[in-house]
Design a protein around this nucleic acid. Structure first.
Lengths: 342, 342
DNA sequence: CTGAAAGCGCTTACAG
DNA sequence: CTGAAAGCGCTTACAG
């Protein structure tokens, strides 16, 4: 049996109030008694029951994290950042997979609510009206990570997707590519789809590159094989393309695989730039040039912000936009060098 | 303010006992009252406080998962399996990173203990005497995932590392490779180091391949760059090698990167086989042939087993060994074909 | 079938 | 400085 505060009180010959005090306000207890209590605690391997404490303080020191699917390689770094931030403030994380299902989301939120979670991080997915109302009626403090809400006043931490896509495209243009394709996520995805396509198109437009959206963009859903097929279609309809912007590292690797397997050299014939900078980006051949999201920081800052909301500390800005950055590796070549090699 | 059972009792004009009953044993309450209570619950958005319940039942429905580092790409699939198993039985998971630090482990275990976690999954790391004693005195139900303990009677779920390494090596030998190198983890690692080296050597021995361990094995610690360097050293001292067994997919990708970057064709000149079958394995070029661990299942079964221990259901076997399997992709070629190509 | 009471393991005014 | 008491939000014998 686990020892309780009563056992400690009995063994040290004081009341449970006193035991409680030596744990929470030791200076209120005379040293002699304090010692006796401390000894009893040690002897009994006593440690306080967080449920009882939580009941009184209305705090549990645990946060809920909702992500679409932990097996997506985008999350390991993000979650590590969240964990570290939580850990630093003595919080724990309960991580749950929603599989983008509303039903699942509801049932998760219900049990987290019962477990008296102090707040939740909502990751990646756009925040529907329905989700918003759920958080609102449950009165959950929420922070959005790697997503944001233009419609509701909810704190968020993410990258400027439109601008990042713009910069990635400009990076290619600066290297004299003029015929650039894109492998995108679903156009109705308000995070990794729509804004990145817009950024891509804006860059082309700004540089007076003629383009026809229907020939230079192809869509791969989330997984590798989809994007592999998308690359095949893209290459089929736009064979003169010299570079491609893929809106995730996974899509970029799929594109590279397709090219390799069809004897098209990367980057000598076609350059590829990715998005995210997951760990895989450094492990491919050629190593992937990509626009990095500060994944770890996104996670870290999101939890940090949530903790501020919970503790009613002021937060500097509602929607924080963390900087992206192009990581140059070996999958992009200057288009003129390309000509030489050829 | 959150509604409590008292609010529901007041609104529906019954005692809290009755409210409690409609939640837990509705058949004990007359339909008329039951309806009234149900309505009040809905009206107040009432949902029971799991802390109060946990205090009484001495159960929280949450499990602790200790892993070395969630940002390792080995874990996403394992954790997904754990999550699904937990979810299916209405349990939640608190995931914590130990960074292989004893201090960190102790502090994590302390708070999980206070939070009255129902049990813990200990992942990947070998179970030291010290850890064992910790679990023992805390009286935590524990299951080991992707590791096991020869010394203590603790349930575990993992692959037979020695045999899997043996099979991977035999796979190369069957394809007529006779000069095979290995990129291994640290030899003192009782999971991904020692047994896999032993399996590798046993395969060579069984097939009468002459070998000198000091020339055909090199060590890369955990990360990519280490293994890249290890591959460089291995190739330097064993240039006639035609195939390499890497004891993780990450090591295999590092080996492939090294070979590519030095214009050594894979698999045409040197074949590479990996270990784990993480998602990256399908995304590399060439796609990686590897010995798969059933990562998802390891996670799923470990939680399943832990739940059985917690509920005092019998478990079929203390140490379950899940089957490994070689996934053939494109990074290994028959050594005779290799000669032809050359 | 239902309510009052005790209790789960704590914390925190309130007296003294 | 310290103890008795009330209370956090529930569940569960025990009477009736």
């Amino acid at each position: 049996m686990k020892a309780t505060i009563k056992d400690v009180a009995r063994l040290s010959g004081v009341s449970i109030s006193t035991v409680s005090r030596v744990m929470n306000n030791p200076e209120l207890v005379v040293p002699r008694k304090r010692q006796r209590v401390l000894e009893a605690i040690r002897e009994l391997h006593y440690s306080p029951n967080a449920l009882a404490r939580g009941l009184i303080h209305k705090r549990t020191g645990t946060l809920g994290v909702l992500i679409p699917d932990i097996s997506n390689l985008f999350y390991p770094a993000v979650l590590r950042g969240m964990e570290d931030a939580a850990n630093q403030s003595d919080y724990n994380l309960i991580i749950c997979n929603t599989d983008t299902s509303t039903v699942r989301r509801n049932s998760i939120l219900k049990v987290l609510y019962e477990k008296q979670i102090d707040g939740v991080i909502w990751t990646s997915e756009p925040l529907s009206r329905n989700s918003y109302e759920m958080f609102d009626t449950l009165d959950f403090p929420v922070v959005l990570a790697a997503t944001h809400s233009p419609d509701y006043e909810i704190p968020s931490v993410r990258v400027d997707d439109e601008q990042a896509a713009y910069d990635a495209t400009v990076y290619l243009i600066k290297r004299r590519h003029t015929r650039i394709g894109m492998i995108s996520g679903p156009p109705n995805d308000p995070i990794s789809g729509y804004p990145r396509i817009q950024g891509f198109l804006r860059a082309l437009r700004d540089h007076h590159l003629q383009f026809d959206e229907s020939v230079c963009v192809e869509f791969g859903k989330y997984h590798f094989e989809d994007s592999y097929e998308a690359m095949k279609r893209l290459h089929g309809k736009y064979p003169e393309m010299t570079a491609v912007f893929a809106s995730s590292d996974e899509r970029a690797l799929a594109a590279i695989s397709y090219l390799h397997e069809n004897q098209i050299r990367v980057p000598d014939e076609i350059s590829v730039i990715g998005f995210d900078d997951t760990r895989m980006a450094g492990m491919s051949f050629p190593r992937l040039t990509t626009v990095a999201q500060p994944l770890y920081n996104i996670g870290y800052l999101a939890v940090d912000k949530l903790l501020k909301v919970i503790n009613e500390n002021p937060i500097e800005e509602l929607r924080t936009c963390v900087p992206h950055q192009i990581i140059e590796r070996n999958s992009v070549i200057d288009c003129t060098q390309r000509a030489v090699i050829k």
